[in-house]
């Protein structure tokens, strides 16, 4: 199975349900290199079409999802989406000129917080990444990182002082990732933040951040703005990684112990053949060769 055929088996977000234009306006976008049109019919029913062929749709997690496959893999479960006392916050979409896989990998990374999200999610000298655990959950076929801890000066909109924040990361499908983090206002629950990635093509993606929070104080505008601010800081990085695609050859980039989640994610992608947006061999990009592997 080639990379594109593999990618076609999944569901992808293409719109926020509340912001799909009313009939007869349509929304045009792209998915996996294919033009698609999103239409809200007169009766309110939604449809997604490519070359006049209707694709399957799914309305879940505040977004409209679609798949080019007639028999897509089931969409991943976010149980917290059923907890009605959470506030659900779709944050819009941001276009990034990078591989969809690079966007997901960056979302799984904490070591960049002091340098990219300075004084918000991290700050010097609190740069150390303590050991944490990464597993591949064979039942769910997910990458899971647990016991991740990091010092954060302002962990969320509702946080005022620095705290050690705990994280759990889940990668339930190649282009979606979810994190669970310490809720700054309550000890008994965790906030949920996700990125859903719409692959425009192998080197361009639209990223839809989504949150399910316990936050009674912040306005919707404040919560959305906070997440957009964080993601726009990441965008400056993502558009300047070379090569644009995610290299899966361990010789191409040098991970350390802090990158365990990334290492597991790359191996998991390679093993399942999820290669859309990936570089398999250094020979694909001889310029990108590096000289050693530090800590593999």
């Amino acid at each position: 199975m080639n990379a594109l055929d593999h990618a076609k088996q999944y569901w992808y977000p293409v719109a926020i349900l509340d912001s799909i234009p009313t009939y007869p306006d349509v929304k045009n976008t792209r998915l996996l290199g294919m033009d698609i049109t999103i239409t809200r019919q007169k009766d309110g029913a939604l449809s997604v079409a490519h070359n006049e062929e209707n694709w399957l749709i799914n309305e879940v997690y505040d977004h409209l999802w679609t798949s080019p496959s007639k028999t897509p893999k089931p969409i991943f479960d976010v149980p917290e989406a059923q907890e009605r006392d959470r506030r659900f916050v779709p944050c819009g979409v941001v276009r990034v000129r990078c591989s969809p896989l690079r966007a997901v990998e960056n979302f799984l990374d904490i070591a960049h917080f002091p340098f990219v999200h300075t004084d918000i999610l991290g700050s010097e000298p609190h740069t150390e990444v303590a050991p944490y655990s990464v597993d591949i959950d064979d039942d769910k076929d997910e990458v899971i990182a647990t016991k991740v801890k990091f010092f954060q000066p302002q962990a969320a909109k509702s946080a005022s002082d620095g705290i050690i924040t705990d994280y759990v990361y889940r990668v339930p499908s190649p282009m979606n990732a979810i994190l669970y983090k310490t809720c700054p206002t309550r000890d008994d629950v965790q906030d949920v933040i996700a990125i859903f990635v719409q692959p425009i093509d192998e080197e361009t993606c639209d990223v839809w951040p989504w949150m399910a929070l316990y936050d009674d104080d912040s306005t919707m505008a404040e919560m959305i703005e906070f997440q957009q601010l964080i993601f726009l800081q990441d965008r400056s990085i993502l558009e300047n990684q070379v090569p644009t695609k995610l290299p899966l050859d361990p010789k191409m980039e040098i991970p350390t112990r802090a990158d365990l989640t990334s290492i597991a994610y790359r191996r998991w992608l390679k093993r399942r053949g999820a290669l859309y947006g990936a570089l398999l061999n250094t020979t694909d990009n001889p310029k990108g060769t590096s000289n050693s592997v530090a800590a593999e």
């Binding site: 926020i16 912001s19 779709p90 944050c91 819009g92 979409v93 306005t219 919707m220 505008a221 404040e222 959305i224 703005e225 957009q228």
Partner: peptide
């Protein structure tokens, strides 16, 4: 006061 410029066009 944060205003939701995008996506809400507040």
């Amino acid at each position: 006061i944060a205003v939701e410029f995008y996506p809400g066009a507040e």
